[in-house]
């Protein structure tokens, strides 16, 4: 597991060293982070329920306004917990 994991972690970095970093390739590389992160969260948010949706909105708003990861994360978890345990108002 360790070997295979490291191979993937180093592999992308290595492969891009073999490629000429043209403008198009650079644009592609620049677009990867956002796309990967959206891909990580989108299914979890969409297949979640009202607790996740509400928490997602709160996290995005807080992260945008405060810039604090810890604050946004804590409030997000608290909202999920509260809505899951509170009266079924939603």
């Amino acid at each position: 597991m360790a070997v295979v994991t490291y191979a993937t972690k180093a592999g992308g970095l290595w492969a891009m060293g073999k490629v000429d970093l043209s403008e198009t390739v650079t644009h592609w590389l620049e677009a990867i982070p956002g796309a990967v992160i959206v891909a990580i969260v989108a299914p979890a948010v969409v297949t979640g329920g009202p607790p996740e949706w509400l928490a997602t909105a709160a996290v995005l708003l807080l992260a945008w306004k405060s810039g604090s990861i810890l604050l946004a994360m804590t409030v997000g978890i608290a909202i999920v917990w509260a809505v899951r345990h509170g009266p079924p108002v939603l």
Partner: peptide, 14 residues
């Protein structure tokens, strides 16, 4: 599961 690391590592290259 870790194939995504290929993309992520590539993105660090610049």
């Amino acid at each position: 599961v870790n194939l995504r690391y290929l993309l992520m590592g590539a993105a660090l290259r610049p």
